[in-house]
């Protein structure tokens, strides 16, 4: 193996021997988008997600959350759910509300097979990009990646201050971390006759709720 390494690298050096080493571009901050006020940005974010087949909602205050959850549970026939065990979701009381609605709770560190049987996975989002309708989810023990992947429905609840102007801002924040995923709309394909089909492997439905104020 070391011989392979040595040979590949010496092959590259030989190939580049009489060649100028080209510089990086002076700037990579290209096409910065003019960002509007907070409200316009949230509208943009949610409308981009809607265009991709996601379902969005603004949650005006603490009282609206249980109502929204009740509607979601009814509409998507949610029986089993799992969620991130983060301080934010704990403070919102998502677990208590879902339990009160008769939903069975599945711990987020359960086996993949068990998580795959969940109807709903609830997560937060570390950041969001209004321009593309993108959610940024970092993975950690508290924020297991499978919660946004295996259940049939994914609900992400975001704080209004999660929005970022540009992908560059997001990357500056997350580059020091380990795993992360950018999620833009529900799982999709056009592999059969170019017909858009939603819900191939990931969740079949994506719900994104934005809290009007970080009322947690």
């Amino acid at each position: 193996m070391n011989q392979a390494r040595a040979e590949i690298l010496s092959g590259i050096r030989a190939a580049l021997q009489s060649t100028p080493r080209l510089p990086l571009p002076a700037t990579t901050r290209i096409a910065p988008r003019a960002t509007g006020d907070a409200d316009a940005e949230i509208s943009r974010l949610l409308s981009e997600i809607e265009k991709l087949g996601g379902v969005t909602r603004r949650i005006a205050n603490r009282d609206e959350l249980p109502i929204a959850l009740e509607e979601l549970v009814a509409k998507e026939s949610i029986q089993k759910a799992t969620w991130w065990d983060t301080p934010e979701l704990r403070a919102l009381g998502v677990a208590e509300m879902l339990t009160a609605l008769g939903v069975t709770s599945v711990p987020p560190d359960a086996s993949p097979r068990t998580l795959a049987e969940c109807d709903l996975g609830v997560t937060g989002a570390d950041a969001a990009l209004p321009e593309t309708g993108t959610l940024v989810l970092r993975s950690s023990r508290e924020q297991p990646q499978l919660v946004s992947l295996l259940p049939r429905v994914h609900l992400a609840i975001l704080r209004p201050d999660a929005r970022r102007a540009d992908l560059q801002d997001v990357f500056a924040e997350i580059k020091s971390g380990k795993r992360a995923v950018l999620i833009t709309g529900p799982s999709r394909t056009t592999d059969i006759e170019k017909v858009l089909t939603i819900g191939v492997h990931g969740p079949k439905a994506l719900y994104v709720w934005c809290l009007e104020t970080p009322f947690a």
Binding site: I174, K178, V181, I183, T184, P186, G202
Partner: peptide, 19 residues
Amino acid sequence: TGQKITAYTNLITPGGEEG
């Protein structure tokens, strides 16, 4: 594809708590 970004972009740095 003419999308602004694809549905999923996975960023995998090995050695995290997950995966």
